[in-house]
Design a protein around this nucleic acid. Structure first.
Lengths: 270, 270
DNA sequence: CGCGCACTTGACAGAGGTCAATCTCCGTGG
DNA sequence: CCACGGAGATTGACCTCTGTCAAGTGCGCG
């Protein structure tokens, strides 16, 4: 695993860029070169405005080009990584979406997050040098593969990269702790807040904030929100009766944002 | 705030250590010198084995001594920082304990975490250059003050520091996402898991894992666990009747670890 | 085209919330 | 030193929300 190169640098030596050959060999078969396709460069990537890894301030850095080792396709239902897999790479989602799943001590499993294009995966693996959750594709998806030892090296050499990694990790902390708010919320509030969160994220990607598809099942949604699938279904149906949304299977259209926000923020109002 | 010095370094200049005068001036009145007291050095600090900021691998680094600008006392009920305060420092708890509190959109507030000696505070402020929660002392407490621009500088110069900050942030991510597990747990499971978590953290600090004081009120405990204070109280009383614990006000003694673990892991068993 | 999985909807039960009364500390001041 | 007051904790009665169980529907994928 990457422990060797990691601890070797103590004291400030290791000025040479790590070759990262182990990673390259290990995953080469699954990867497509980043310099093959059309939007193969971070600079020209259409996701740049929202990408958690490559914001504008990093675009000037020539080295960022080299960070993305390649791309990897993940088919619907397949795992990008699983709990306990040795941590080697961070990933940025290019297309598609993922769920993060964690196993409880007694065997039950819980969805701990949903992630869409431009968001990063794998950061929970840094701490213990192995991933702390499963990352499962909700649809056929593709990710940018970024070997962590390269990111480490860039973090030392380029101030902007280091700053950005710090901020990215901290931002994730804030987001996760926000989802603790679910604990004190009723089922209505949880579902409303969930829809508004998805809406906001689609909007940031220049998609319609009012019409989108729920790529996850009702059961996965319920697991994430701490509800049973029947409750999710019932709540959506009621929201529809109240004219807040229009739901047809996985397709959702938000009809009344103000009303939905009202529900998300108020414990007991219709 | 620290934005200026942060972005100034872009490109790899700024080899001189930042003076951090702004921070020093701003807070000097509240601080005691780190080189005054007995355990004023990270090297001799009794918390070193558990300190999230200064583990063994960093102890060799002479520069770590300079990271701690000073100490700050926080009286019971007072805030170390509040939501929106400009982010300048990370903190390591020396003595005492804190709760982190976040405000919901409708005004209700939720406890998002409890922290004891050796744990770090303020990491949620890196992302947006302002703190994302209130940190309130649960008892008279003291913290080590670490200006983030100094930590930033050390992160560039010393590989071990950078590695460690990455790991510390990632470990926090894992811990926070573990607390999402509460969503699928019953009240019994939540309270049992809460007691076991506190026990584990006290044990790591060489205190008794079976007898300790709950510094937080039932209401704060409930807020953190997503329960009402009455439910927390009732659950503790029932655990006592079942011989799992002995509770007298804030003092807790765990009598049956195996039983408590059983409750924490099983949805519906006595 | 039809099988199966996901979803919807209903009836019921139970976990936890709400409201309220009472108790136990502890600090404060007479 | 004790009386008092107030915050926190406990306990009970009741009720609501959500989980559970079950039946039925529809859509997607082979």
């Amino acid at each position: 695993m990457f422990g060797t190169s990691e601890r070797a640098g103590k004291g400030g030596s290791a000025d040479k860029r790590p070759a990262s050959t182990a990673v390259r060999d290990e995953t080469a078969a699954h990867l497509r070169s980043p310099h093959a396709g059309a939007s193969s460069s971070c600079k020209t990537c259409s996701l740049r405005p929202v990408c958690a890894v490559n914001p504008d301030e990093l675009a000037c850095s020539q080295q960022m080009e080299d960070l993305v080792l390649g791309y990897r396709q993940v088919k619907k239902g397949e795992a990008l990584f699983r709990v306990g897999d040795p941590f080697t790479n961070l990933y940025a989602i290019r297309t598609g979406s993922f769920k993060k799943v964690t196993l409880l001590a007694d065997g039950r499993e819980q969805v701990t997050g949903f992630h869409v294009s431009g968001e990063s995966l794998g950061t929970d693996g840094i701490a213990a040098a192995q991933y702390a959750s499963d990352a499962i594709a909700l649809e056929d998806s593709s990710v940018c593969v970024m070997p962590f030892d390269l990111l480490e090296w860039l973090s030392r050499e380029v101030d902007a990269v280091r700053h950005h990694v710090f901020r990215m990790l901290s931002a994730q902390l804030v987001r996760e702790s926000n989802s603790m708010m679910l604990l004190t919320m009723t089922a209505d509030e949880r579902v409303a807040a969930f829809l508004l969160d998805l809406s906001r994220r689609w909007q940031a990607r220049s998609y319609s904030p009012s019409a989108f598809a729920l790529r996850m099942t009702r059961e996965e949604t319920g697991s994430f929100l701490g509800l049973k699938l029947e409750t999710v279904s019932r709540t959506l149906s009621r929201f529809q009766k109240q004219g807040l949304v229009q739901v047809r299977g996985k397709d959702v259209r938000i009809l009344d944002f103000a009303g939905l926000i009202e529900v998300a923020h108020h414990p007991s109002s219709s």
